[in-house]
């Protein structure tokens, strides 16, 4: 019931977010044609504005935009005028999906085992070392890891290409630079979830029943302990799949993360709103998915 209600609420919520983004970028000072190579005469600029309907009232422009959205048209890019927003998303999104998806895999694949292991070995040296590694990962931003990886693995040892996009080996450094930070965060969440689950009564009961330690840890503790990670994974995946400005600009990757930042700087209105809509839709759907997984993992909600 609740799920159906939430799915029905998605379109109006997305419409509201689109409206907010639409108003936000238009209220901001400056316009899409401020940084043209040669200053256009007022005449020409008026023509361009009329061509993109920027001379209409904001309300009419918004209705026009929503009308386009219904037909699956995100509108023209005001900066890259030979392209539509659909073109740019179609070209950039697959790249960002690959890098972001792989980084998501790195984050969960390294973070969950590390967090699990450090929680099980609580207060021993493995816990201290693992906890420190996770915290260190959280404290090194991508714009530090990226250049360091380039200097070490690409320039000095020549193991991977320095930048650009093409073969699988081009993806290794960006995925590492993007994923390591989030692996640290996932590990910390996993460790905390596991620590608090292991002190719960039902774990004591499971041990008292004489279950093997691995059954206690994996069958009883893990599904509950992983819940904080699951909650975090939704927003994380939405974030990663829509590209990272830093990683894409350091490694010269043609994803959409660069466009999100540049279009906000350039006031490329349809582009900003289109990408915000993409992000918000992904986020809301993934949060819905997260709640479904929660329901399935947590026996208290399943049987309650």
């Amino acid at each position: 019931m609740d799920l159906i209600k939430r799915i029905l609420f998605l379109p109006p919520l997305l419409l509201l977010i689109t409206f907010l983004a639409f108003v936000l970028v238009r209220v901001a000072p400056g316009g899409p044609f401020d940084r043209e190579r040669r200053p256009a005469s007022p005449e020409i600029e008026r023509h361009i504005r009329a061509k993109y309907h920027l001379d209409e009232s904001i309300g009419r422009q918004y209705l026009r935009y929503v009308g386009g959205l219904v037909r699956g048209d995100f509108g023209p890019s005001l900066k890259y005028r030979s392209h539509t927003v659909n073109d740019i998303i179609r070209q950039g999104l697959p790249v960002s999906l690959i890098v972001g998806g792989a980084a998501f895999g790195v984050a969960l694949g390294l973070g969950i085992p590390l967090g699990f292991f450090t929680a099980v070995r609580r207060h021993r040296w493995e816990d201290m070392a693992g906890g420190f590694i996770a915290l260190l990962a959280v404290c090194i931003p991508g714009f530090v890891v990226g250049p360091l990886l380039v200097m070490g693995l690409a320039i000095h040892w020549r193991l991977f290409p320095v930048a650009l996009w093409g073969t699988a080996s081009h993806a290794v450094l960006p995925v590492m630079a993007l994923g390591i930070y989030f692996a640290g965060r996932v590990s910390r969440l996993m460790r905390e979830g596991m620590q608090s689950t292991l002190t719960a009564d039902f774990i004591t009961t499971a041990r008292a029943k004489g279950l093997s330690e691995s059954a206690v840890l994996w069958r009883h503790a893990f599904p509950l302990a992983v819940l904080p990670v699951v909650s975090y994974a939704g927003p994380l995946l939405a974030d990663l799949l829509t590209g990272s400005f830093v990683i894409e600009s350091i490694f010269q990757i043609p994803g959409i993360g660069v466009f999100l930042v540049n279009s906000s700087l350039n006031r490329d209105y349809p582009m900003v709103v289109g990408l915000v809509l993409l992000y918000a839709a992904l986020l809301l759907v993934l949060n819905l998915a997260v709640d479904c997984i929660h329901f399935w993992l947590d026996p208290r909600t399943r049987h309650g």
């Binding site: 509201l16 936000l24 209220v27 000072p29």
Partner: peptide, 22 residues
Amino acid sequence: DVLYSLPSIVFVIVLITTLEQY
């Protein structure tokens, strides 16, 4: 919730340039 679903980078960029202007 709605503010959560706007990418914060877009929000910051627009906010800083708007505040700077006004």
